[in-house]
Amino acid sequence: MNTTSPQISMANIFRFLAQSMRYPDAEWFNEDFWSVLINLLEELQWQEDKAELTRVKAGSKDFLEDVQIEHTRLFINAIPHVVAAPYASVHYKGDGTLYGIIAEQTKKFYREKGFALAKESDLPDHIVYELEFLAILANEDPEGQKKFLKSLFTPWFEIFKSKVLEEAHHPYYRVVMNLIDFFTREEL
């Protein structure tokens, strides 16, 4: 069956997952986004996740701020320490600092496929960029997508995901990690 428009496409899925990992602000982390997320969980029959998210949201005084604080704690700066910086080179093939070998390899891969980051000073191995790039590849280069997943994405994402799942306080990022995992795993 054709999976392109108007049906769901993997490109749109990856764009959605990339969006879900951006810093949440009112401009996009709104009822429309939420409705799509909940419907996605419904279609996937992830009833427990859907129920937990719905319950936590209903019980929150300021759901957006809760997710913002959790995002900051997990991915930016936090006490006692940032849980999982969302960059490949912090977790894989290096000494735990930014812009390590895998970041350079990732940037090279983008270039070889004819793309570059719009802001050159940004780090190429941020999870949002990698998911956006998977969206591009999904449309244009399925073989490239497989290669990118295997060699550059999955190895570090496995480590990253484990850290987030272990230490996340908020169900939103647990669900997002599982969604990314679900849609990027090689064999299902």
């Binding site: 764009r15 429309d32 799509v36 980051l117």
Partner: peptide, 21 residues
């Protein structure tokens, strides 16, 4: 599963971090 149920494209940013190069 139709786009009407999951209008993914409508809830993501118009721009990505990439340009063609």
């Amino acid at each position: 599963i139709a786009a009407a149920t999951l209008p993914l494209a409508k809830v993501v940013s118009a721009e990505t971090g990439f340009v063609r190069d």
